[in-house]
């Protein structure tokens, strides 16, 4: 097989206790026999571990936080592209996707490909829009409402039974057992992620997830179902196992074919004791456990790169059941010179 040389810009190098998907995406691409990839890390924080993992990330550039606006991001991408000749960029954070989607055509004009959901797809699956989404596509979702103030929160809580889930706009979720607890979480989440804060009915059951890739035409290119085996205090899976759940995969196909989803996605689901599947969240990007899909036989990052570059991609139709991932942490020893170079020059 011909091995194509590509330069890939990747965000999400924060391989920490609540990891971004960047490093496992890089692993998938590096292991692909189709590509000889030079990885250009795009980092927001000087301490994102991937920056210092030189066997995986060839070069890293700091990029401006999404709060600086899309124009600042575009200017930085132009600077980086002038030096690195990027073939594509894979953004991996929810919070940055809006800017990248808005910049998609401008980035494309530079000759850099992306493979992202449309703005409509991105917006309609927001946690705060989930009830409407459930109605539109005929899928079960828990009751959710948006709170923009403590006053809103008090009014909303009157129509909920405790416990309730209190969720940040982009990340983080807490289970609240009383109005006082809900208020404390509201303040914490709004300070971190802005408004709205979402109040969601608590659905008891087993947490299961699907990672998937849609081609934008309604076809599922890759889909793997996983059961979380160990969940951290931040709600992240620290261990998981691939499962053979036909109804989860049917739900994924239904959503992708109806929405014509383009790009990576993660369905966060709850299976209740009476065997009903509820969608808790639809994350519009590849999740951090993507390497389990690679290990089970579906190299989703490779398929995403192919789609972005306009190459032919055959949909995966099966994966190994009973493959597990177990996450671990590892202390790297890094010379302060590397850190100082990054801090002072914005690249490493």
């Amino acid at each position: 097989m011909e091995c194509r040389k590509i330069n890939v810009g990747i965000t999400g190098l924060n391989n920490i206790d609540s990891p971004g998907p960047g490093m496992p995406v890089i692993r998938g691409i590096k292991e692909s026999p189709c590509f000889d990839a030079r990885i250009i890390g795009l980092a927001y924080d000087h301490l994102e571990p991937g920056i210092y993992m030189k066997e995986w990330v060839d070069k890293t550039y700091m990029i401006p936080y999404p709060s600086k606006g899309k124009d600042a991001l575009f200017e930085r991408i132009k600077e980086i592209h002038a030096r690195e000749k990027l073939d594509l960029i894979i953004p991996n954070f929810d919070a940055e996707l809006f800017s990248f989607i808005k910049l998609e055509s401008q980035i494309d004009q530079l000759g850099i490909k992306t493979f992202l959901p449309t703005l409509e797809q991105f917006e309609e699956r927001h946690k705060s829009n989930l009830p409407g989404y459930g109605k539109k596509y005929g899928v079960d979702v828990p009751k959710s409402e948006e709170a923009f103030s403590l006053n809103d929160l008090s009014n909303i809580l009157r129509s909920f039974q405790f416990p309730v889930m209190v969720k940040g706009k982009y990340y983080d979720a807490y289970k609240a057992y009383s109005p006082e607890q809900a208020q404390a979480y509201f303040i914490k989440l709004s300070a971190k992620w802005g408004y709205p804060v979402i109040v969601q009915e608590f659905v008891d059951g087993t947490e299961v997830n699907v990672i998937a890739l849609g081609d934008g035409k309604g076809n599922v290119i890759s889909a793997v179902a996983m059961r979380k085996q160990y969940i951290t205090d931040k709600g992240k899976a620290w261990g998981g196992v691939t499962i053979s759940d036909v109804s989860m995969l049917e739900l994924t196909h239904k959503i992708i074919s109806q929405t014509k989803w383009r790009g990576g996605m993660e369905l966060e689901l709850i299976r209740t004791t009476d065997n009903k599947l509820y969608i808790l969240e639809i994350n519009p990007r590849i999740p951090a456990w993507v390497y389990l899909a690679v290990g089970a036989g579906q190299n989703l990052p490779e398929a995403l790169v192919k789609l972005a570059l306009g190459m032919e991609v055959k949909p995966y139709t099966s994966y190994e059941i009973g493959k597990m991932f177990i996450r671990y942490s590892w202390d790297m020893i890094v010379d302060i010179d590397m850190f100082s170079k990054l801090v002072t020059s914005g690249e490493l």
Binding site: T206, V208, M226, R227, Q229, G240, V241, I243, S244, D245, R271, I321, G322
Partner: peptide
Amino acid sequence: QSIAISENGFIFNPATGD
């Protein structure tokens, strides 16, 4: 029929991950 049973008494239900 879908469950996997190993000789050492370990059972895995591939549909649920239990």
